[in-house]
Design a protein around this nucleic acid. Sequence first.
DNA 1: TGATATAATGGAAGCGCTTCCATTTGGAAC
DNA 2: GTTCCAAATGGAAGCGCTTCCATTATATCA
Lengths: 332, 332
Amino acid sequence: MAVTIYDVAKRAGVGIGTVSRVLNGSPQVRDETRQRVLAAIEELNYRPSPIAQRLSLRKTLTIAVIAPFFTRPAFVERLRGVEATIAESEYDLIVYNVETTDKRDACFHEVPLGHKVDGVLIISLSPGDDDVARWQETGVPVVLVDAYHPALSCVVVDDVAGGYMATRHLIELGHRRIAYISDPLVNPFNFTSSRDRYTGYRQALADHDIPFRPAYHQQGEHGRAQARLLTHNLLNLDDPPTAIFAASDTQALGVMEALRERGLRAPDDVAVIGYDDIEVAEYLELSTVRQPFFKSGTLGVELLLKHIDDPQQPPQHVELPVELIARRTTVG
Amino acid sequence: MAVTIYDVAKRAGVGIGTVSRVLNGSPQVRDETRQRVLAAIEELNYRPSPIAQRLSLRKTLTIAVIAPFFTRPAFVERLRGVEATIAESEYDLIVYNVETTDKRDACFHEVPLGHKVDGVLIISLSPGDDDVARWQETGVPVVLVDAYHPALSCVVVDDVAGGYMATRHLIELGHRRIAYISDPLVNPFNFTSSRDRYTGYRQALADHDIPFRPAYHQQGEHGRAQARLLTHNLLNLDDPPTAIFAASDTQALGVMEALRERGLRAPDDVAVIGYDDIEVAEYLELSTVRQPFFKSGTLGVELLLKHIDDPQQPPQHVELPVELIARRTTVG
DNA sequence: TGATATAATGGAAGCGCTTCCATTTGGAAC
DNA sequence: GTTCCAAATGGAAGCGCTTCCATTATATCA
């Protein structure tokens, strides 16, 4: 059926060991022999079986990415970075999309144990100590992107600084009544970014002697629709905010939608700033905090490959900078 | 090191054949024996090696998806459908992102030949006859989503009908000067959707006795920025269009941007309709043509699995319906 | 020219499974 | 207690590689 190394060996009149050596670029093959083998490979259109190689090498040569694709719009950009880096390596990329906590738990349990992959990259999902302990035992390296655990290599952005930046930006524009709309700070997926940005928000307020008003922090399920409702809550207050910081651009869209429904405009009536700098933010002239998605993906893979090469490698924590992008919805 | 089937066999006091039978749910194992084996598996926390299974079974149990992730925003939704369906099967999903023609050619050449996958799903990329012929020889089934080839199973939407629908919608609103902005009809990736929608556009015009004006068809590289420039071209005409049909929502954003720059509004000054119904279209109240992305992904995988199960399966061509979504930018 | 070191080569063993075939076991029927 | 058949089981072979070790060819030196 398929051409094997034996066929090539026979055709070239050599042993299979020699063919293997040629395949793997071993220097100890006479040049003339190498040519003969190469010719046989060519003539038979031979391709070594990756499965057999992997069994023999005791490596899977594949890396898994576990991510909540779709609950986070910016995910694609990160995945793109991941794919680009893996494509340059000898590894294959296999992906698991997590949209429910059940699937997450299943992935956390099975993926690193299944002898299926040499390493795991987890995006935006925070494992528990028990998960991490279990993974350590298997010896399969795990790297986190946009999530944190002290025992694992992580690539994060400084969301506290980002939250601070966005809030300070609004303060510097003269706002004092500043609201924050976010995902639930405590949520089943344990997404931490909303929480960190909240911390930055609170710090900025404190540093500028603006008292925090609990009613100005509205949390609800991620998404535009929910953010719209939360915004209406805010605008119904006796003392509505003059500026709203949304924990993501998607949510900022919901804010804008609510404003539109009330005939209000940004920034004149209410200033709005989002987070992520997703594709449409520029078109909408939405102020935001940009984070380096692509870069975080490439960096995550690079760290993971390092851990695969050298399992002794101590965990490394990389923090990527965020950048304030001031556009019309805050500065007019 | 790792626990193997031999360890389990020894522990359970049975032969490896029996362990394998238990693993694969063979009925011919005495119940008491099965319990003993199961217990041993549990105690040793054994997981069979997928690699060894695959080598033995002569199957890779993996499926490749080749797609231009990022040049097409709606891709994520399709990938989501693909992942969801594969996750229910015993297969793994490995992804290749194609952003250049070189990478595409490399993928087209190597992926189906490499003994790496049992099947290939290609999204939005049209292979040539030579590619297809080569694939047929290898016996690895290939299914196309959002692309077409007579010899392959395909899942497509009726883009001609979609283009027709959008154009007729504008005509019914009283427009006669209707422009079309699209990707280059002839392009290195051989994307066909712009071309098909163009065909629909031309047909609708013809059916309603509206002469086609070449200047009303503007083509340029995909993307918002380019569409914006093309729109300015249109608006600079002596006789500018009163309605613009953009081949994608992304491009429609560029159209809207250009209108905004000129102080024009949709639909009063110029009506605008896009294509795809991407996430933000609703927020922007953009009229558009919706296509079932998720469904196309699931269907593509289902077809592929069928071909893997039965290689004799003749190619099947599925056409999914599109739907006109009329919103503010056309109907006010 | 022969002895010896070195480079090149062949191929068995082993990676961890599945499966087939031979063998054993357990009962049913007498 | 036998006989016989079906069910249950053990384990060798084989999947297609890599690698190690033994062997052979080639080169070097005296």
